[in-house]
Design a protein around this nucleic acid. Structure first.
Lengths: 370, 370
DNA sequence: CTTTCAGGGGTAAGCGCTTACGGCGCTCGG
DNA sequence: CCGAGCGCCGTAAGCGCTTACCCCTGAAAG
């Protein structure tokens, strides 16, 4: 009633056809770049499209072509927790970079990215996923979003790629990073270069495949090299900085001899650990070294700059979408992709902090792993 | 093969109807919660739905209902720059938090969020937006995505809310944060508490309304209080930490007396500024104080913890979606919403760093402003 | 024992777009 | 000079789902 758009609502292909004096089929052909159209006709149609500001209705296109050109990204609900009191720094950068990578790749193929939480919030799980399926052509499921067993039914209906999973699914493609290789390189650096034998591993949520992979790889590597690795009670947090602060606090309260280095399962926790150490008057890396995993942007600007294992999160997202698009086009993409990680040595492990004003990449050191 | 739909692709409402021995209209009614359905019938239908794992096709629903239940979030292309060499830390947290807020709100109303860059990458601008319009019911446009004049044609076609704009559009709802109030509080704190008169403002991209708003508000406030504010040549970066490092580097090279405090247009740049200062052997806040804007999660964990102005980014995203949903439901929401900001005093301004292990909120200090 | 009338549920008309089939007119080869 | 063939474009049949209409049945009303 009030304002709105022009007289007759949103223009459809019929309006364009009428205005250009052709049939809707012709309009459609022009819009879809078919040849066999007389230049003069094409021009008339395009003119009409311009004048009316016509934009094809994606629903109609989706219905008729059977392709919506939308790929869904499903996050674990915990990430989207609606608790306003929670600091919510949780894997923040991870989600963002991932989304960005996915978006970029999707854009390249004229697809769009739809964000979805596994919204168990409202209805039953099935119903929740319903809304999802119907809107997308394919899905990217993040670590822990659904348990392995539940992937089956989903993958049977729409192409799916699992991110950061264990890589052991016969139903869906899995794309992940080389956690083991990165940890191997890190362990070697700590033990061989810094001669640190007493280490501690500050883990993230225990039910995360990534956490599990990083932990076991690091422990195996450090043990292999003759070192030890604390990982019991105090050494567990929830991926967040504040969780790490608390964990380190608990460990300090024990008043027992500290490890030489605290290896954190992600950078957020490394930041928290460094903070807790600093508050306790301990110096990093003087008293205790701290290293992380991810190489989030701020890592290089911390003092000391954080030594960490860089993982190509963005590429992860891009690879997932890329794989899905391939599949939608009928090709059969690789089943299990593992992206490389890379050790980035900066100051927090005890190496001299690179000057360089924090620009560009510091000394990436090996990291092929395996 | 196995039971279920396997044979002929994805099950449709027809399959369900046939299986339940009713018409598709009845199935639709059951699915849409209409009453007037005999319990026994409803059960038969639901049973069939379950057995077939039926999920309604959103395209079809969208076509027939004229509502896709999808809201688009359009980012400026620069954010999604595909240049792999660029560090791309740009407003990272901002995008993430915003998306999260939007997603949460959308979820509450059974909507989904579609991500879109203003993909000028491929085709012409019009064509780029075409893909957008068709897929969504409404749009959230971010700062700088489109220039004010271009909003008109878009807003005329689909409900639009502008984020962080100047708040001066009669065509679309605008939602932004109280930059002025935050800066006012910050200036007062610096001048009245720390007696800092010589300040510098490190700005972000000049064409950003937010940058402009923050700068002019701060300068006005500090001038009013008898202080001065450097803002010429060296004092401009691109919202990124590395840009800030470079800017501060240039200022240091001038070997002129430094200001007492560097006020950065966002936290990323504050981080870069602190880093550059540290590399130059200067202490913060001892030699120069540094403050930011945003209050990103890491802010509290920096050393010293960053004094900054907190802006409710998440709520920004949520408010945008909330407003759009209202509009889609026929209500007429507020035209220009301004969310409050809040000064968060930590150590980098010269105040004693709060201990508290970085948990919880530090001393939020006023900030209603205006 | 008819008549009336809900409650239940089937029929069919779209929603806007794509595309398989032709059809028409014009150009060419024979 | 005529039929074949091709370029260009219109016709119409869906795609899967919602919903306005309308019909049928059984129960209450007369």
């Amino acid at each position: 009633m009030s304002a709105g758009q022009t007289a007759e609502g949103v223009p459809t292909i019929y309006h364009v056809a009428q205005r250009a004096g052709v049939s809707i089929a012709t309009v459609s052909r022009v819009l879809n770049g078919h040849d066999q159209i007389r230049p003069a006709t094409e021009e008339r149609v395009l003119e009409a499209v311009r004048e009316l500001g016509f934009v094809p209705n994606a629903s109609a296109q989706g219905l008729s072509k059977g392709l919506k050109r939308i790929i869904g990204l499903v996050f674990a609900n915990s990430w989207w927790e609606d608790d306003p009191t929670s600091v919510e720094e949780n894997s923040l950068l991870f989600a963002d970079e991932l989304i960005r990578g996915a978006q970029l790749a999707a854009d390249r193929h004229a697809y769009s990215v739809l964000l979805l939480s596994s919204g168990v919030t409202h209805r039953a799980h099935h119903a929740a996923f319903s809304e999802v399926f119907g809107k997308v052509d394919a899905l990217v499921l993040l670590d822990r979003v659904v348990r392995q067993e539940r992937v089956g039914p989903i993958a049977k209906r729409v192409p799916v790629v699992l991110l950061a999973g264990s890589g052991r699914s016969r139903l869906a493609t899995t794309i992940r990073v080389d956690n083991a290789g990165g940890m191997q390189a890190l362990a070697e650096h700590l033990v061989l270069v810094h001669n640190m034998k007493r280490t501690a591993f500050l883990g993230g949520l225990a039910d995360s495949p990534d956490n599990e992979a990083r932990f076991s790889a690091f422990r195996a590597a450090v043990t292999e090299l003759g070192g030890s690795c604390e990982s019991d009670e105090p050494w567990s947090a929830d991926w967040t900085s504040s969780g790490a602060v608390a964990a380190v606090g608990r460990r300090l309260a024990l008043r027992r001899r500290l490890p030489e280095v605290i290896v954190c399962a992600n950078d957020q926790m490394a930041i928290g650990a460094m903070h807790a150490l600093a508050m306790a008057g301990l110096s990093v890396p003087g008293d205790v070294a701290v290293v992380g995993f991810d190489d989030i942007p701020v890592a290089r600007y911390l003092s000391p700059p954080l030594t960490t294992v860089r993982q190509p999160i963005r590429q992860l997202g891009a690879a997932a979408v890329e794989s899905l698009v391939m599949r939608l086009q009928g090709h059969e993409p690789a089943r299990d992709v593992v992206l490389p990680t890379e050790l980035v040595v900066r100051g927090s492990c005890g190496c001299p902090a690179t000057p360089g004003l924090g620009l560009g990449a510091e000394a990436p050191a090996g990291g092929k792993g395996r």
